[in-house]
Computed example of a mutant assay.
Amino acid sequence: MSDLVPLSDADWPGGIADMLPGFAGRLDIYRVMAHHPRLLRAWSDLRQHVVVDTTLGLERSEVVILRTGVRHGSDYEWGHHVSRARKLGMAEARIASIKGPLEEMTPEDATLAGAVDALLERSRLTPAQQAGVEALVGREGMFDLMATVGFYTVLAFIANSAGLTLDANIRAELEKTPAP
């Protein structure tokens, strides 16, 4: 069992006390990251861009995040982002398709998921993939896709290494309505 446990409020580092009431205190993944307060502080600006200010838009971002979570075998990321995708109104069949082969996805989702696959398998997009992603989301969107894959790859490394289970609220939600 890993000793990378989410820090409690009582164990929260004083140097990042201001982060506890925000995003960092809401999810166990960030409570684990709080073992390295300087990293969590630096992470904050990138998180703001990747999660909130992305040019991908929320649904496309969720496709990228879900596919990244699946490819890393991160049940933590998958479960949390199934919840977010549902809140955005994404259909269950669409969410489920993100786990499977590209041929079973919509063309847009296949373009995004195929780019995730390429980045994780070969650490690059081919010129054809770059053109396809840019046609869909623009040049900045292509960079945001790459940043999102990298960002959630690091989170998957942390979640998987810590053996994180779903946060209680997400676990309860998925017990009522299981993830596809």
Rank of each mutant, 00 (worst) to 15 (best):
R26D: 00
S8Y: 11
L27W: 03
G89N: 05
L125V: 00
S61N: 12
A85F: 07
A24Y: 09
E140W: 06
R31I: 10
F23W: 07
M90N: 02
T68C: 07
E173D: 12
M1R: 11
D75H: 14
L46N: 06
E175W: 08
D45W: 15
V70N: 05
G57I: 11
D144A: 05
H35W: 02
H80E: 00
A42Y: 06
D117S: 11
A85H: 06
R67N: 01
S61M: 09
S2P: 10
A85V: 00
A96I: 08
T111G: 08
Q130S: 10
L20K: 14
D75Y: 10
L56M: 03
I98L: 15
T165F: 05
G132C: 05
D3C: 02
L66A: 03
L136H: 03
D109T: 04
E175S: 10
D45V: 14
L56A: 06
F143M: 13
L164W: 08
L20N: 04
T55D: 05
A24N: 03
D9W: 01
R124L: 15
L7N: 07
E103T: 15
D144V: 01
F23N: 07
R41H: 10
P107N: 06
Q48T: 08
I95L: 08
A179E: 03
R38H: 11
A135D: 04
K87W: 05
R84Q: 14
D144N: 08
G14I: 01
W43Q: 14
A147R: 15
L174P: 08
G69L: 02
L145C: 00
A34G: 09
L155Q: 13
R31V: 00
A115H: 05
M33K: 02
A10T: 14
D18M: 10
Y152Q: 02
D45N: 14
A168H: 11
A34I: 09
G57H: 13
G141Y: 04
D28Q: 10
M1V: 07
I98D: 07
A91K: 13
D9P: 12
S161P: 04
P180V: 00
L119W: 12
L4K: 14
G150K: 07
A113L: 04
D167F: 12
A147I: 00
L46M: 05
L155S: 09
F143C: 06
I158P: 07
R94H: 09
V149S: 02
G89I: 03
L125T: 05
P13D: 01
Q48W: 13
G100L: 10
G114H: 01
H80V: 06
P21N: 03
E108T: 12
E103C: 13
T55N: 10
Q129S: 05
G15N: 15
A24C: 11
E62D: 11
L58I: 09
H72I: 03
W78K: 04
A147Q: 14
Y76R: 12
R47E: 07
R41G: 00
V5T: 15
R41V: 01
V51T: 06
M105P: 08
I65N: 12
R47I: 00
L174H: 09
A24E: 02
R31L: 00
E92F: 04
S83R: 15
F143P: 08
H80S: 00
A91E: 13
I158K: 12
A162K: 04
V149T: 11
I98E: 11
H81C: 00
D167I: 00
G22M: 01
P6F: 01
